[in-house]
Amino acid sequence: MTALPDPPPARRLGLVIDLDTCVGCQACVVACKEWNGGGPAGPLGDLEPWGAAPSGAWLNRVHGFEVGEGEAGRTVYFPRSCLHCENALCVTVCPTGASYKRAEDGIVLVDESKCMGCGLCAWACPYGARELDRPSGVMKKCTLCVDRIGDERLPAAEREPACVATCPARARHFGDLADPESAVSRLVAERGGVELLAELGYRPTNRYLPPRPGRRLAASAERLEDAPAEGGFLGWLDRLLGG
């Protein structure tokens, strides 16, 4: 049903992504493609996979940006997937009822047996989180790995999204952002987690932790004192070693 759940879900499951530690390694990108491509959300088809103009469906991508200039400049990697918005226009525009937001935890999903591949939801998502799988003609998006996080057969530690489990820089965190006591909520509070493009009014669930300001060395302008003068450096050494 493309009506948004009313009242809004009590749980808001989502990701918290730390831009301070993401090294842009693309591990989460491929893990996502592989887990979901081989799972209920798959396949995630690729056209011309070995040809001149390859193109494929991916649910998570990592972009490399530079911000600022000169001394203040930095490189920032930006992982981008569905933010599981509370006010998900992608859901309400869907004419078929294929797109929906789960009432229990706020996860936005596509029931691909209903999708007619009109693409409107992708247009309606400002975050570019939706991709059409061209071979099957249906819409795909980040599932928040519902088939992992809710799989009781998995050991508890593994009930997390594939991208989170694999991130070697531990830049991705998963949890309930509606619960102020959850680890992710605390991280967001501590680090000033950002609601991406909040002014658009989508009320995304995911949060991004901004890069910590670098502690530049030159600014510290610290300088080592000369070794005590008496006997010079070697005298100092003698004293240190006692003889």
Binding site: G24, V29, A53, P54, S55, G56, A57, W58, R61, V62, H63, G64, F65, E66, V67, G68, T75, V76, R80, A122, G128, R130, E131, L132, R134
Partner: peptide, 15 residues
């Protein structure tokens, strides 16, 4: 400003 320097994918996509 922020400038893209490394595209996520060199390949294309439907979107």
């Amino acid at each position: 400003p922020a400038r893209l320097v490394e595209p996520a994918h060199s390949a294309g996509s439907w979107l």
